[in-house]
Simulated scan of single mutants.
Amino acid sequence: MTTTPAAPTDEPDQTLQAASELLRALASPVRLGIVRELSGGGKYVHELVTALGVSQPLVSQHLRVLRTSRIVAARRQARETRYTLTDDHVAHIVLDAIRHAQE
């Protein structure tokens, strides 16, 4: 049995644009690492710095990109800020991409 190629979808340009912006926001090894770390639950910046082995300013810069893209949310707790994923679907995308790269 042969299959025919999938017909072009009628996705609105806005949907494709939003998907493109999501992928652009994830297009950094540090940002992928942040999402991977946050997939297990919320973390503070110092925890991300330790887990990723990069500087605090670099983590903060990448968190800013992820916050602007609404991939992560920040919640102030006393003197620190705890970061969490806004949507578990993004974690699945990142974790699947990492697993695929390991094959």
Rank of each mutant, 00 (worst) to 15 (best):
R67Y: 13
L23N: 03
V94G: 06
R64H: 13
I71A: 10
H100D: 14
L22W: 03
M1W: 06
Q61N: 14
Y44M: 02
V30I: 08
A73P: 15
A19I: 02
T81R: 00
H89F: 10
A19W: 01
E21W: 06
L63H: 06
A74P: 01
A18L: 05
T84N: 05
V49C: 09
A27D: 10
S55Q: 09
V59H: 01
V90R: 06
V35A: 03
R75S: 08
A73D: 15
T4H: 08
Q77E: 13
A101Y: 13
A73H: 14
V54Q: 05
E37Y: 12
A7M: 08
A78M: 13
D88R: 11
L22C: 04
G53A: 04
T15Q: 04
A7C: 07
H62S: 01
L63S: 04
R79T: 11
R70Y: 15
V49A: 03
V72N: 07
V65W: 15
A27Q: 03
L26D: 06
A91I: 00
V30G: 11
D10I: 10
D88W: 04
V30T: 10
L58R: 11
I71V: 15
A6Y: 06
L52D: 01
V90M: 07
D96V: 14
V72G: 14
A97D: 09
R75Q: 12
A19V: 04
T81G: 00
A74H: 07
A91Q: 02
I93F: 09
A78T: 14
E37C: 07
H62C: 01
V35H: 01
V90P: 14
L22G: 05
I98Q: 03
E47D: 08
Q61V: 08
V94R: 03
T4C: 12
A6E: 10
L85D: 08
S20M: 06
R79I: 04
D87C: 05
A18D: 05
T2D: 11
R67F: 11
R75V: 09
L22E: 02
Q61S: 15
L85F: 11
Y83K: 08
Q102C: 06
L23R: 08
L26C: 02
E21T: 13
L58M: 11
V54D: 08
T2Y: 15
R24N: 11
Q77V: 12
Q102I: 05
H92K: 08
L23V: 13
I71C: 05
Q14S: 05
K43N: 07
